[in-house]
Amino acid sequence: MKRRVVIVGGGAAGMATALGLESRGVEPVIVERDTEMGGKVRNWHKLFPTFTPASEILDPLRRSIAERNIECRTGVAVETVASDGVTLAGGERMAADAVVMATGFTLFDARRKQEYGYGIYDNVVTSADLEQMMNSGRVRLADGSMPRRIAILHCVGSRDEKVCQSHCSKVCCITGVKQAIELKKMFPEADVFNFYMDIRMFGPGYEELYREAQQSYNIHFVRGRISEASPMINGRIQIKAEDTLTGRPLKMSIDMLVLMVGMRANDDNGLLAASASLDVAPNGFMQSRDPFTGAVRSPREGIFYAGAVTAPKSLADTLAEAALAADAVVDYLNRTQR
């Protein structure tokens, strides 16, 4: 009989892990809290650093899941996990030979950084909102006009102990560069300013894209964090920051403020961890067995991790980790052959 593995989460990590397991003769079952599969990538327009449409990655994943008849339970949350299965909300028990947690992350709620006026002032949007606007094919200011000056603020809800998010969300720097280029392509006459604390270009092609943004697109980079955004009488937004490289405060009016919202740990990580005696890292993400050879393993035999459940990750890293997780699960199932 086929061994059965429950995968918690139907985003990119969960789907890729399921496909990896299925091709090795294991029967995966995906449980997705949302009513639709695809996770956060579903709402993304294009991917850094290649500007690949997100659908080009997501659609083949979803198609393969359908073609291979992988069972997906959508619209139902998992309440407890164990190495021999999970309990769903409502009490239903799903037995399994192993469990993979691919529950991902939660987008930081920009309203918590009240000083930026997200949800209060027009034309203050998040990086996720901008992707949605690009998906809809229309990026405009609230009054329908085109922006002439745009500020992109990095590290909103990242590296910020004030909002209990001391970690780096890793992908926002390159997203800021990507979105700056996309905005500049849409509005060539506009000035685009990136406000950053550090620029962390860790991936292949990232530094090159950063350089291109500077040299070919004339995108401005100011090292300093915006301290507050306020409304102006003409409907624009005034921002203040320090230009730390000149050691002077700086202010300007802008038409649009894009907040690079970070990745934070899911609120239910603690409960899920408690149900299976797993560890939660100080930043709230799940703690892997070790960061080198045990990145996809939990401290408990039979429970595995894939993707951003353990830390902020790019889609590329998530997909690579999904393959790794499938390998680790098969390895475990072989060792525990009945």
Partner: peptide, 26 residues
């Protein structure tokens, strides 16, 4: 005020310099 006020600064010369030497932005 000590603040750099981008709104009141005349950026024409700065833009000229950047046009002639775009690599300065890097």
């Amino acid at each position: 005020p000590r603040a750099i006020d981008i709104d009141s600064n005349d950026l024409r010369k700065s833009n000229e310099i950047l046009r002639e030497m775009p690599e300065l932005q890097t």
